[in-house]
Simulated assay, not measured.
Amino acid sequence: MFYRLARHRPALLGVQNRLRPPHAWREEHDGLIVFGDENQGGFTWLFDPSRPDPDVWIDQDGYELRRETAALTPVPWEPWRWPNDSTRFYVTPGVIAKTTDQWHENTSVWVGAVHRSVLRPLGRLGIPWTDFDG
């Protein structure tokens, strides 16, 4: 229904940051569908078409946090505003993680766990951790 209305009122799709009409959606390599774009190409919005009520993912500057956060559940809060507006939280039993976009297309990932053994799977991701105690 939304897209039917947008055919008659294209501004509904956005002016600066835009939603793509379904014919312009494209699939990413991991099966997620890109359905929206930031006006300067800084990020895209994606969703998983296999889920009935999918989460919306943000892929900023081509950096994908999906491998770090794939086994974690996003906390359904608005982005935390410190140290900047991009901070997100994720959880799974025994783990809490925080991701924040940094300068120069870097992202910091902080993970806390009830026991260091819970962190072991993250050590196998090939991430150049600054400090890792798992």
Rank of each mutant, 00 (worst) to 15 (best):
I33C: 00
F2N: 13
D55Q: 02
G41C: 05
G31C: 08
S86R: 04
P74N: 10
H115L: 08
W82E: 13
G112L: 12
Y90R: 01
I33Q: 13
P74A: 06
D48Q: 06
E27C: 01
Y63F: 11
F2K: 05
G94L: 14
L19F: 14
V114A: 15
G14M: 06
T44G: 09
P121N: 01
R88E: 02
Y90C: 03
G14L: 03
L32W: 06
W45E: 07
G126C: 00
G41Y: 08
Q16W: 04
P128L: 12
N84W: 06
R88T: 04
R116L: 15
F2G: 00
H8V: 02
R26Y: 08
R4M: 06
G36E: 12
W77D: 10
L13E: 07
L125E: 02
P121T: 01
F2I: 04
G31Q: 11
R51A: 00
R7F: 06
R9P: 01
V15S: 13
R26M: 03
E64L: 09
T130V: 10
Q40I: 11
E38N: 11
P121D: 00
T130E: 14
S108Q: 12
E68W: 04
N39F: 15
W103T: 15
R51T: 01
L65Y: 06
F132W: 03
V15F: 11
T99K: 05
D55N: 09
V118L: 13
W25L: 07
L13P: 09
A6E: 08
N17M: 00
R81C: 04
L19R: 14
E27V: 15
V114M: 14
L125F: 09
V114F: 05
K98T: 11
L46S: 09
Q16M: 03
L13K: 02
R51M: 10
R124I: 06
Y90D: 00
Q40H: 13
T92I: 05
P21H: 03
G126E: 03
E105W: 14
G31W: 01
A70G: 07
G94Q: 09
F89W: 09
T99D: 05
N106G: 06
N39D: 15
D55G: 08
D101S: 15
D131S: 05
G36P: 04
R120S: 10
G41M: 05
V34N: 05
Y63C: 07
E27Q: 15
F47N: 01
V56T: 15
V56Q: 02
R120P: 03
F2Y: 08
R67L: 09
M1Q: 10
P52T: 02
A24S: 11
F43S: 08
R66T: 13
P74E: 04
R66N: 12
D131A: 13
D48R: 02
R4Q: 14
R9Y: 13
V109G: 05
R20E: 07
P10K: 02
T99Y: 07
T100L: 03
T107D: 05
G123P: 03
H8L: 13
A24D: 14
I96E: 07
V15N: 05
E68Q: 11
G94F: 04
S50Q: 10
L122K: 03
D133R: 15
M1I: 10
L65N: 05
V111R: 02
R7P: 08
G36L: 15
G123N: 06
R67P: 07
T87G: 02
Q60T: 12
A97H: 06
L13M: 00
D131W: 01
T69G: 06
F2V: 09
G126S: 08
G42F: 08
